[in-house]
Simulated assay, not measured.
Amino acid sequence: MSEPFALLWSRKSNGFHIEPLARACESGMRFFQGNIENDYLLLFTGSSDECSSKADELRRVCDERAVVRALYGPHEDPI
C-alpha cells in the first residue's frame, strides 16, 4: 500500500499544499504543543494523485474567493 497524503488548505494564501500524512500530523502536533496558530487546515487524505485531484476540484472555490477578496477586501470570521 502506498503512503497516505494530506491535502491542506491555507486561508491566508487561499491555496493548497500536499504532503505525506505523517508529516502533516507531526507538524500539527508541534503547533499544538507550542500552542501556536496554524493557518493550514486538513481537507482530505488519500494517495498523492487523489489529493491532487481533490485540489483541482476545489480550486474553483479558491478562485471565486480570490475574486471576492479583490472586490471587497479580506473577510474576518466573527468567531
Score class of each variant (00 low, 15 high):
residue 40 Y to R: 08
residue 13 S to D: 14
residue 9 W to G: 04
residue 34 G to T: 01
residue 18 I to Y: 07
residue 5 F to V: 06
residue 34 G to D: 06
residue 62 C to N: 12
residue 31 F to E: 12
residue 44 F to A: 04
residue 5 F to M: 09
residue 47 S to Q: 04
residue 53 S to D: 08
residue 57 E to Y: 07
residue 70 A to D: 14
residue 45 T to H: 04
residue 9 W to N: 08
residue 69 R to C: 09
residue 36 I to C: 03
residue 3 E to Q: 13
residue 79 I to H: 13
residue 38 N to D: 14
residue 43 L to V: 02
residue 79 I to N: 15
residue 61 V to I: 12
residue 67 V to P: 01
residue 27 S to D: 12
residue 44 F to T: 01
residue 27 S to E: 13
residue 38 N to P: 02
residue 52 S to L: 15
residue 9 W to C: 07
residue 19 E to Q: 15
residue 76 E to K: 11
residue 38 N to C: 05
residue 12 K to I: 10
residue 46 G to E: 06
residue 55 A to Y: 04
residue 74 P to H: 10
residue 16 F to Y: 15
residue 71 L to G: 00
residue 10 S to V: 06
residue 5 F to C: 07
residue 9 W to T: 06
residue 2 S to T: 11
residue 55 A to P: 01
residue 12 K to Y: 10
residue 65 R to Q: 11
residue 17 H to F: 12
residue 26 E to K: 09
residue 43 L to M: 13
residue 17 H to Q: 13
residue 33 Q to P: 01
residue 38 N to K: 04
residue 20 P to T: 14
residue 28 G to M: 05
residue 45 T to K: 09
residue 40 Y to S: 00
residue 56 D to I: 02
residue 76 E to C: 03
residue 26 E to H: 06
residue 57 E to S: 05
residue 42 L to R: 05
residue 72 Y to D: 08
residue 64 E to Q: 12
residue 56 D to K: 12
residue 2 S to E: 14
residue 4 P to I: 11
residue 72 Y to Q: 13
residue 62 C to D: 09
residue 72 Y to P: 00
residue 26 E to A: 10
residue 60 R to H: 08
residue 4 P to D: 13
